[in-house]
């Protein structure tokens, strides 16, 4: 659970880990029924209404101005998103 929480970038407390372990076990136990179906020759469906290679012309279009893009940022400076120290 701690590994999965790390992968999901979630900080969980001990109570949450206990609760989710219990709940995820019961959900996965329910989901185990899928293993009984033979799907050896079945292709997976990723989208119900299949479209192939949706392309558009590589043209530059007007996008939102920089100040608007940054308007919702928790912290911004000099036209950049600001984040805590990385290295």
């Amino acid at each position: 659970m701690k590994h999965v929480a790390h992968l999901a970038r979630l900080k969980l407390n001990e109570a949450e880990i206990d609760l989710y372990t219990l709940q995820m076990n019961s959900i996965l136990e329910y989901a185990a029924r899928l293993q009984y179906i033979d799907t050896s020759n079945i292709e997976p469906t990723t989208h119900a209404v299949q479209l192939y290679n949706v392309m558009r012309d590589d043209e530059v279009k007007v996008s939102l101005p920089q100040n608007q893009v940054l308007a919702n940022a928790p912290e911004a400076e000099d036209g950049f998103f600001q984040v805590p120290r990385i290295v």
Binding site: L28, A31, L34, Q35, I37, T39, I42, E43, P44, T45, T46, A48
Partner: peptide
């Protein structure tokens, strides 16, 4: 493979 891919295959059967 056991979960996600399997579920997508079952999705095909439902379709």
């Amino acid at each position: 493979e056991d979960y996600y891919l399997k579920a997508q295959k079952v999705r095909t059967l439902i379709k």
